[in-house]
């Protein structure tokens, strides 16, 4: 495992910010770390990087226990943090030069990461004159110094324009194949994670409620059917009365079935029930793959 935590817990006074989080980030994975604002993502990342001491639990980065040897553990990751921490009175190149020296890397490394992030042309300008997007790219360049085995990206598309977002996505997707890196992306934007991640962990109220490969999670053991009807409220009541697992979704209702293989027969049973027994006109009844969005939406109920 590239990153592994066990029972990671952090309190701020009485407030439980991170509650027994046990996460496993496989090597060469793009792990999307999802959660709403205040879910505990930033605190978890700070614990992973050794910026905070956990109240309980352990963190292993590339097999190294962060609590025992933070310096050795931190040789394995580079991070793009939300607060970039660039010195505005220095140029982008000079800012990278500082980190390069602290990492004892060869001088050409700065030119390499500037080239990779297409920042060479702006590198001699003072960082105080940079746009947010340029700072974000420079932050990525700094995280890439020394080609770390694990890249921790905290909200990497913040401040980027549409083109920049697409470049960032492409860049992140290619990283595992290109340099063998593992990427841990924290975001509250589901769409962002859905487009790049191979694995996902969803944090809710400090607890990791969902974790696994995106493929497995989408496949899951359940399937859904979206039903469009003239009277959804009544349809929900009837369906629930007969033991169907249904939820409203806007003007629609979504029925979830545990056995994917019997989806067709289960859906037609629901159709018959609504039309015949309930006398409700069903406009459409369409099966759909369980989306990451549905998993994300259901996460709060799993936290309780």
């Amino acid at each position: 495992m590239a990153v592994e935590t066990c029972g990671l817990t952090k309190r701020y006074g009485d407030y439980l910010a991170v509650d027994s989080v046990s996460m496993r980030v496989p090597e060469r994975a793009i792990y999307g770390f999802l959660g709403r604002n205040g879910a505990g993502k930033s605190t978890t990342l700070r614990l992973l990087m050794g910026l905070m001491r956990p109240d309980a639990g352990t963190v292993h980065i590339a097999g190294v226990d962060v609590a025992r040897d933070r310096v050795r553990a931190s040789r394995n990751f580079g991070a793009l943090l939300e607060a970039h921490g660039f010195y505005g009175h220095l140029s982008g190149r000079e800012n990278l030069e500082l980190t390069r020296r602290l990492l004892d890397l060869p001088a050409w490394e700065v030119a390499r990461v500037l080239d990779v992030t297409e920042m060479t042309v702006h590198s001699d300008k003072c960082v105080s004159d940079y746009s947010l997007g340029m700072r974000q790219r420079l932050g990525l360049a700094r995280a890439l110094l020394g080609s770390p085995a694990i890249l921790i990206l905290d909200e990497p598309t913040n401040g980027l324009d549409a083109e920049g977002i697409e470049d960032m996505r492409r860049f992140v997707r290619e990283l595992p194949d290109r340099s063998g890196s593992t990427v841990l992306i924290s975001s509250h934007q589901l769409d962002e994670i859905d487009r790049v991640a191979t694995h996902v962990g969803i944090l809710c109220q400090g607890r990791l409620v969902v974790e696994g490969s995106v493929e497995e999670l989408k496949a899951g053991s359940s399937a859904e059917v979206v039903v469009e009807t003239a009277s959804p409220a009544r349809a929900i009541a009837i369906a629930r009365e007969h033991g169907f697992d249904v939820m409203p979704e806007g003007d629609l209702l979504v029925a979830r079935f545990q056995a994917r293989e019997d989806l067709r027969s289960a859906a037609s049973a629901l159709n018959r029930l609504l039309c015949v027994a309930g006398g409700i006109h069903v406009h459409s009844l369409v099966p759909r793959e369980r989306s990451l969005e549905a998993i994300y939406r259901n996460a709060p109920s799993m936290a309780n």
């Binding site: 910026l51 010195y87 505005g88 980190t99």
Partner: peptide, 18 residues
């Protein structure tokens, strides 16, 4: 303030140095 201003502490403290 060189560090406080741009909130550079997290970056500095995450580097592999005492």
């Amino acid at each position: 303030h060189t560090e406080h201003g741009p909130r550079a502490w997290d970056h500095l403290r995450s580097l592999p140095r005492p």
